[in-house]
Structures are given as C-alpha cells and as structure tokens.
Design a protein around this nucleic acid. Structure first.
Lengths: 344, 344
DNA sequence: ATGAAAGCGCTAACAG
DNA sequence: CTGTTAGCGCTTTCAT
C-alpha cells in the first residue's frame, strides 16, 4: 500500500487544466490568486487542487522566474553561543518572510568558507549572511556576489572596507569600557586575551583596550596581549604563559565568556583567587557567565537581535541593483555588565 | 562598472554550444565528464566555460532530474548544546556528500514544526532529519514523506512506533544508571526532573529511574517526579517546589546539564550545599558541566557523532523505495561520568 | 476573464 | 563520439 503511494505520479497544473477544461495559464493564475480570474473558476480550481493533492513545483517555478527564495548563511563556528543565538534570529526573520535558509559551516577554516561561498553562489541564493573565520583576510571569493549586487551581510565580522553590509557592535567602545572598568577596579596590570587579530572585531577591541590604558597613563605591554583562537587548548596554553610571567596581571579582559570561564577555572586550580587576586571580564554575556562562581562581568549585546537585524537588512536589499546603499554598517548597542568576577 | 556586471546575462550551455559549433548535449556531457566525449572536445569546452564564466544552472538541472540534492533539518531548539553539536555532525556529512542543508527551527512549538515539515515537503527535499518538539504527539504531518518513502530520520526523539529511522542512545539504561549511581552514593530520596514525557526519550529515562528505584526497594513517589520543559523558568519553579517539600530529596537526576547547573546555583543560593546536602547528576556532558563547581556528574554521549550517524543513515536511504529498511533504530553508546556533584 | 504559444536551461532517449 | 528531439512544470506575453 505504501509502495503504491510511493509510485504515485505528481499532479501538475496540466492535469488540473485537463480535468477542468481550462488552460494551464488559468490554473497558474488561480493558484497565485491573481485578480484577473473569476471567483468561481478560482474556487473550482482550488478545490480540485486540494482534492487531488496537488503540490506546487518550486523547481519549475523557480527556473521560470530565475530566483530561489533562498538565503545562505555561512557560520564560522556552530559550537558558539553567539552564532547559534544569531542563527535563531536569522531563521525567524527569514522563515517569516517565506524564504528558505541554507546553512554552511566553515568550522573556522578558510577553505571551507570558500567552498561554501562558491556553492551558494552556484546555487543562486538570493542573499548571503556570513560570519567570517578568523583566518579570512582575502575576501575575493565574495566577488561573484558583489559584482552582481547580490546582498552580502557580514555579521559580527566587519573586515576592512570590503563591500557589503556589516552588522556589528561598537567593539572599540566595548574594549575601551571593559578595560576602563578593570582600571577603575584598581588594576595596575591589565592583560587582554584576544581572538585572531585578523578579524576586525578583535582588532577594534584591542584598540579600545590600548586607548583605555593610555588614557590612564598605563603602558601597553607586549606580553600583556595574548592572541589566540579562544579555543580550549589556547586558553590552557595562555594560562601556562600567565603563570610563568614575572609580574602576574591583576586584571584580564577575555574576549569570550566560555574562554573566560575556562580561564577562571584554570587559574583557580593554580591557586589564584578571583576576584581577590585577579579580576576578569568576559565578552558576550553567554548563559555560562551567570552559572560560574563568581559570576562573570561581561559585555552584553543581543545576538538574536543581531541575527534579526542582519536578516531584515538583507531582505530589504533584495532587488536593489544600484550601487547606492549596497555597502554600509549597522551598529547595535552593547553594554558592560558588572558582576562578581570584577568586584572586590 | 559594477552595475554593468550586475546586468551581465548568464551564460548557458546553448551559448557555449554556439561558440564551439557543437550541440548542447555535447556540452552537457562534457561538463559532467561523461566518458563518451573525447578528451579534446572536453578540454575545449571546459576551457571556454572557464573563460566566459559559465555557471551551471541547478534550477534547470534539478527540474529536469526531479531532485534537489537538499536535506532538510528541523531543530526543536537551537539554543541547546546538544542540537547544535548534532548540527555540526550533520552539516559535515551532508556537505561532504555535496548535498545542501536547509534548516528550520521549530522553537519547541508544534505549529512551527508542522509549517517547516510542509515547507520542506513542498520544496522537495531528498530527506528529512528532525528533532521533535516536546509537544509533538501526533506525527501525521510527516505522512507525505512516509507515504512517498522519502527518508525521515528522528534524532534523539524516537516517538512510539512511527515509521522512519531513529537515532538515539539507550535512554532507559542512562536513566537506570544515573539513578543507581545516586542510590549507590547513599541517596534515600531520589528525585527526577524530566523534560516533556510526551517525548519518548524522557519517558524512557523515567522508566529507567523507576526501575532502578524498585530494584533497590525504594518507592517511586509522585512528588519526586517533576515534569518540566527544562527551561530556565521551569527550573526556578522546580526549585521553589523542592524547597517547600516536607522531606527534601537528597539526590536529583536532572535531564539536562544546563538545567542541572542552574538548579545547583539556585539550591546553593537557598543554602543547600552540593554534594554535601544533596547530590546531582545531569545529562549530555555539555561543556558547562566541567565549568561549574562542583563539576557535574552526567551522562555522556557524542552529539556530533549522533548527527553524523543520522546524516549517513539518511544518505544511505536515498533511492530506497522499498518498505524494507525504511524503519529501524540505531542505538549509540552512552556512559555515566562521575564528577564532584555526586562525590562526598 | 481566459487561452495559445513560447521558453526558462538543462538532460536523456534514440539515432547515427 | 556526437546530434536531434522532446520535455521537466511552470510563467508570461500577446491575443481575444
């Protein structure tokens, strides 16, 4: 019985047309609810379609109309609370707008990013949302999109002056605020653990960190800037490095909450007490930041909202073939949240 | 200059055919590297295609071949470490196989699940991977897939005897092991905080919990089974409930690590010490389980591996129109990990 | 308000 | 090894 069903031929508008003795154009128009078709014929057609289980063939429709109603998302790291939260926002907006969401995972590797970009281009997505990997410096793989004015939105990953729309927070300010807070808490030796400085967001935060120090007449020390990929391994290594330092830092600005939590745990294990011996501020306000003890001070911003804005911005761009408005930046708010890890 | 590019017409195989004075079939065959075409013509064609920037039109090809090379995934909750880890595995296998991944987020609501299932059916995905919401009891929306023998894989959400492939762990055993461990740690009053019992996975764990108690001659108390959606709010409510109990539990089996971590924090706040006053075992071995103090005992299994297996199983099913092998269950290993939260 | 006809870009059966 | 032909299922002029 099931096998029978499996072999059932799909109903096409031609079948409907035949049964009702009208043309396929009429069927097509009725199904799309065009005003030119009379109420009665429309009703007849809709009823029959329902009855025989007709399903619209997007393959054919899309070919005819040369569009896919599909948005591509390329995530640099799906094991990341920020990205998945942003994805929630993107999915909501995109699916509410009746678009489909194609997803690719670059896994922080440049080659995979390129493969996915190419693939999405060939698959003719109507737009692209991308969070660049830390290793991406050359964006030429995006040229096919840019040349054709297919909207590209960079989320949380503005990269120099590339074309396209950037949705970010003010990372300079966030870095400045976090660092200033540490200084205000009495820190004399503030360290920063940053992600890849190839990524503009981290470079901006670092600049904020440096300016905050200089404003208070603190030297910016080479050894107090540790560039990592913020992975578990990298944090373990960073801890080793810290513990071997002649002068321990008394405050650390860590560019991710997950990394900050891990750092805190490792420092604890080495006998360093937070916040008594050292204070720590994280980034992102991940759920984890309130589950560790002490709770983490952090920079908060709404990742899901950022995803929504990215998707809305993208949808607004659709059909825009002019050069105007193709490239701009949206800056969303962020704030410092002070918790136990910096209070003593 | 860019605007010019934007208006550039797409090259088709017909264009290539004209330029080289061959037929479109030859072009088509050459591009697909069919052996029937001579090396020379192939080379000529490939060169020209490259030169003029030809891009294959999947819209046309897919229509012609009546397939999409697309897999749909419907996630019940993207704010969930298990799901996103599984997604990593799925994405890897699917994209390695040159398939595309369409994603939908049901957000734990049955209606959205239905909408996405319908949409993916109409979009003619070649297969579907789904993690059901806790509210899904009726699976009739999947019938269109099942009737046509389009592969459906349930991940971490076996539901009764529905058709399709299930990829799960032995939740009965996991529940049994976790509970037995608590009893072995001296607990006389073990509580379980479970997710929606409409979901088979939770029902199975509960069964394991009950059997473990009975095997040791403990009564199964109604008040010691709290059914929730494992959300933050629900856990806060559960804590209230616990604190008001006449006899406090001395051990709690919580069906998610995130919930367990939050529970631990709230109990701490109420002056209850873990593991001294109460021991806790979580589920999933989320990263968070090692970042809280004490570290959480938990049930470990590999979510990414589960995603991979789900995707591989699905791809294996493609093209199988027979009733054999359409429905079966894959059980992956899981294990209890003992950490500080149950050691006293 | 409806129909006829052309065609989106590709593939496949058949012929040679 | 290559060409001819027909068509996948839909939309869209242009008629009427």
């Amino acid at each position: 019985m099931f096998v029978q069903d499996a072999n059932k031929k799909e109903i096409t508008i031609r079948d409907l047309a035949k049964k009702l003795n009208v043309s396929t154009s009429t069927i097509s128009r009725a199904l799309r609810d065009e005003p030119s078709i009379s109420k009665q014929t429309k009703q007849k057609i809709l009823n029959l379609a329902e009855e025989v289980g007709y399903r619209y063939n997007y393959l054919a429709g899309n070919l005819r109309q040369q569009k896919t109603t599909t948005i591509g998302v390329i995530a640099n790291n799906l094991n990341n609370h920020f990205i998945t939260s942003a994805l929630v926002g993107i999915e909501k907006v995109v699916s509410d707008a009746k678009y489909d969401l194609l997803i690719g995972h670059s896994c922080e590797t440049g080659e995979k990013e390129i493969v996915h970009v190419r693939n999405f281009f060939r698959k003719r997505v109507d737009g692209l949302i991308i969070s660049l990997t830390g290793r991406t410096s050359n964006l030429s793989h995006l040229n096919p999109f840019i040349e054709r004015r297919i909207p590209v939105v960079f989320i949380e990953s503005a990269n120099g002056n590339s074309k396209g729309i950037k949705v970010i927070i003010d990372n300079y300010k966030a870095g400045f605020d976090a660092t200033t807070h540490l200084i205000n808490q009495g820190c004399k030796r503030v360290m920063i653990i940053t992600g890849s400085l190839k990524r503009r967001i981290f470079a901006d935060r670092l600049k904020g960190y440096k300016d905050a120090l200089q404003q208070r007449n603190f030297a910016v020390l080479q050894e107090c800037v540790i560039e990592t990929d913020l992975s578990e391994k990298a944090i373990i290594l960073a801890v080793d490095k810290i513990l071997k330092m002649k002068f321990l830092p008394d405050g650390i600005f860590v560019n991710s909450d997950a990394a900050a939590a891990l750092l805190m745990k490792s420092l604890n294990k080495a006998g360093i007490k937070i916040p008594d011996d050292m204070v720590i501020v994280g980034f992102n306000n991940d759920p984890i930041s309130t589950l560790v003890k002490p709770q983490l001070s952090t920079i908060n911003y709404d990742a899901t909202e950022m995803g929504k804005v990215a998707a809305e911005t993208l949808l607004n761009q659709l059909g825009n073939t002019s050069d105007n408005n193709y490239s701009y930046t949206v800056v969303l708010p962020s704030e410092l949240i002070i918790r136990g890890s910096t209070l003593r």
